[in-house]
Simulated assay, not measured.
Amino acid sequence: MQRVSRASVTVEGRISGAIERGLLVLLGVGQDDAESEAEYLAEKIAGLRIFEDENEKMNLSVVDVGGAVLAVSQFTLYGDVRKGKRPSFDAAARPERAKELYEYFVAQIRAKGLRCETGVFQAMMHVELVNDGPVTILLDSKKEF
């Protein structure tokens, strides 16, 4: 997840999702992931205090600043390069299940009152962003379950 001043996703020359101030979420779905992980991540992302307040202290959430979320499915986050030179994606969820959980995650973000733009699942996407800070946070739901 990256705090951004703007971000967009383009597919086949057309913008599929774009936000101004907010969070770019690159979402990897693993084989063992379930709805509970998507709920945890949505709750954590909506509440994380990583935007600066009037005292320049990270004290505000994306909800507090009226920001948005751009959620992009990215199975390559599960790339395992420990052996050889070519990544293995065996730990990533099958596409059907990954799409289901990705869409569930997006619904959970929207249920928190946040505007959530998306990429296009399984498409070749060009992601552009201006990282604000830079602030990049790694969230792993498995560390909580």
Rank of each mutant, 00 (worst) to 15 (best):
V62P: 10
F75C: 09
I45M: 11
E56S: 14
V106L: 08
G47W: 00
S73Q: 05
K112V: 07
F51S: 07
Y102V: 01
D90G: 04
Y78P: 05
R86T: 14
Q74A: 04
V63Y: 01
Y104M: 06
A123P: 02
L41V: 08
V120C: 04
Y78I: 06
G67I: 09
V120L: 12
E103K: 03
R82P: 03
A107L: 08
E52F: 02
L48G: 11
E39G: 05
L60E: 09
L60G: 07
L101H: 04
A46Q: 08
P95N: 04
A91P: 02
K99W: 02
I109H: 03
D80N: 15
L60V: 06
V81K: 02
N59S: 15
F75G: 09
G113W: 00
R110C: 00
K57M: 06
F51I: 05
E96K: 14
V81Q: 07
A107W: 01
A107F: 00
F89S: 03
G119M: 11
L41R: 10
Q108W: 00
M124A: 10
A93Q: 07
E54R: 10
G113T: 00
V120P: 00
N59W: 03
L70K: 02
E54I: 03
D90W: 01
K57A: 12
N59I: 02
M124P: 01
K85S: 15
K85T: 14
S88D: 13
K44N: 04
A42E: 01
R97Y: 04
N55R: 09
A123D: 11
F105S: 01
E103V: 00
V69T: 03
K83D: 02
A91V: 04
Q122V: 12
